[in-house]
């Protein structure tokens, strides 16, 4: 029973990470499409008003939504000098410390970003030209941070391998 619950949880976490990664990928294609359309339309003196705003928002979504995936494939750069010098037990202890620190940092960041989103909401901040509300973007980054926390927990439980093969 418990095994089944764990397995369902694992699968849905992986699905969520993939889902976010797909959004990130689509955002990158959108950035290309908007920029190229803008450049072509500019020749006819009909550029896309607010392309600047759209590209910035798409860029932000692509980086934010890529965060859980990058964490899941162990894509972040780390200096593993100490890791290689330690004994097996030492490595296990270091691993727990490292992943625990990562979780703490991501939780802090997520909580702060929610507060930041609330501040933007209260202040009613919008993008420069199209006046699109901006408050939801910190929330998206925060959700990605929480997903990255779950991913890090998963890696902590299954030491020594990445959660998703790159």
């Amino acid at each position: 029973m418990l095994k089944k619950v764990v397995s369902i949880y694992d699968h849905s976490l992986k699905a969520a990470v993939f889902f976010l990664a797909v959004i990130a990928a689509i955002s990158i294609l959108a950035m290309i499409a908007i920029t190229c359309a803008d450049v072509v339309m500019r020749i006819f003196r009909r550029p896309i008003l607010g392309s600047f705003d759209m590209i910035r928002i798409a860029g932000m979504i692509s980086i934010a939504c890529a965060l859980p995936y990058t964490t899941a494939v162990k894509g972040h750069v780390a200096i593993e000098f100490l890791h290689h010098k330690l004994s097996r037990i030492g490595r296990a202890v270091l691993d727990v410390f490292v992943h625990f620190s990562i979780i703490v940092m991501f939780v802090f960041l997520a909580v702060r970003l929610i507060a930041y989103g609330q501040a933007l909401h209260k202040a009613g901040e919008v993008s420069a030209t199209l006046q699109i509300p901006l408050f939801w973007i910190p929330y998206v980054i925060a959700i990605s941070c929480f997903a990255a926390v779950l991913v890090t927990l998963h890696i902590l439980m299954h030491p020594g391998k990445e959660m998703i093969k790159p």
Binding site: R42, R45, P47, L49, S51, F52, A128, T129
Partner: peptide, 25 residues
Amino acid sequence: KGMKIRATGLSAKIVSSLGATPVAM
């Protein structure tokens, strides 16, 4: 009319209202 003028935010609106083409950067 139609000239490509660098402008962002409010000045982009001024540029379009003058009939020119705002380009943001």
